[in-house]
Design a protein around this nucleic acid. Structure first.
Lengths: 256, 256
DNA sequence: ACGGTTTTCCGTACAGTGCACGGCTTGTGT
DNA sequence: ACACAAGCCGTGCACTGTACGGAAAACCGT
């Protein structure tokens, strides 16, 4: 009687128990749970029920893990579904970016330190460049526009996260909370005559974010129609406004 | 013969050798030299020729030192000199912000983590709110405008700094440099038909920064004159557009 | 079926960290 | 002259990232 697979237990793990994939997944969970300060290779290994040094078979350093985790969560941003006007596309994408960064509050801290060169980050960048180029932005204004948008989102959510972290911490007593709230929210009431700022903070941030985004998008839109008062930027001496066809038409054509 | 002071040597230090002031000055120097990753309390103490634990007489934690150092360098931004149109004032201040953050590349990494509640940071914030309020921005648009501007600056310089750090490091070999440069700068040439991006990178960033800033300021300016196409924001039901007099007229009146 | 090679795993060790604790030194008030 | 307090800091502890080298397992050519 031939011994079948069904009676042979799989025993100790056949193929490698660890993998880069498993490691980054655990890293994201670990970062979500402990924050970037509480993240350690020992803790990560423990979460994987592996020895600490085993991780170094798949990764060269802690920084590598962080880079991988960062690009991983950037991948959580969904691809745009259909053809969309550039402004809607950017608004949706960036709102999603913010959502991801709120879900993973360690992200802004990392983007401020590490360059974003992973495949997902590059795909995002490519998407934005494509959308704005399709809208007619070109030359230095194109890079400026993309840079402005992504810088804004990063900066906004970074500030937003530190706000939540300092004010909504259980350790923060009511007094600190009141003082900080007074300091910051007071600004607005000080200059706008409105004092009751109650508890709609979450909605406040949403609104704040959307408003700021609109401000930037307005500024970009203003550069599209030449009748708006923006007489600067003498344009390149380079005559060619011809646009080379992107080498990968699949992902580009559906942009607009 | 009375013993005069001149023959009595000052001997061992009379008053406390350390002080919060001395510590933050050394901390800034240490951070400039070693970066935020290489910053350690032991190193800082060594720079002050003091025992490590002596620092804790003046400070409760490493984070305290970082917060102090952060607010310290924010103080490097000069006060505006005379009355200025709001747009000029903001442009100058934010350009100086960027200069400070380039001089102290660890700043963006910290602002992404810690809330900015020091006196210098608050004074800056106050200045911006005052300038924009004086220009006629009010309500949620006011906070959004200020948030957008500061978020942009932080985000921009953070990205800029990581760029310099990865590409201009001596450890970065020419190959990495070329690959990264190709990836990023390629975006622009890909969509704008311009390929020669040579070496004017520094000027490029300057221009990029100014352009992005102009985009945002345009967006803000568009909200000032109601004839521009921005029919949203139904305004507060609160009737009073009267602005309360700032309690400290000295620093406010000269804004505009 | 078996010896050898490669791949995966990880225990140990080392230099470094932030900081709690408690003792020492020094200047001051009475 | 003495008590007291303020500034100083050596020692120690728990923790970090990771270099090194050995054990175990998986694969492979014969």
């Amino acid at each position: 009687m031939p011994e079948t697979i069904w009676f042979r237990d799989e025993g100790p793990p056949r193929r490698p128990r660890l993998s880069r994939e498993r490691i980054v997944a655990a890293a994201v969970a670990h970062l979500d749970a402990e924050g970037v300060g509480g993240f350690s290779m020992r803790g990560l290994a423990a979460r994987l029920k592996a020895g600490t040094m085993s991780l170094y078979e798949y990764v060269q350093s802690k920084e590598d893990v962080l880079d991988l985790a960062l690009d991983e969560v950037i991948g959580e941003i969904a691809e745009p579904v259909g053809p969309l006007p550039w402004r809607d596309l950017l608004t949706r994408q960036l709102t999603q970016s913010r959502a991801v960064m709120r879900r993973h509050p360690w992200v802004p801290a990392l983007t401020a330190t590490r360059p974003l060169l992973g495949p997902n980050a590059l795909a995002r960048s490519r998407l934005f460049y494509g959308a704005l180029a399709g809208a007619g932005v070109a030359g230095p204004e194109l890079t400026a526009a993309v840079g402005t948008l992504t810088s804004y989102v990063n900066g906004f959510v970074a500030a937003e996260n530190t706000w939540w972290a300092t004010v909504r911490t259980p350790a923060a007593d009511a007094e600190l909370r009141a003082r900080v709230a007074g300091l910051l929210r007071g600004r607005m009431s000080e200059y706008a005559g409105q004092t009751r700022v109650d508890e709609a903070e979450n909605a406040d941030f949403d609104r704040q974010f959307a408003l700021g985004l609109d401000i930037i998008l307005d500024g970009i839109a203003a550069r599209l129609r030449p009748e708006t008062p923006a007489p600067e930027t003498p344009a390149l001496e380079d005559p060619g406004p011809e646009m080379p066809a992107p080498e990968d038409p699949r992902s580009e054509t559906r942009l607009l």
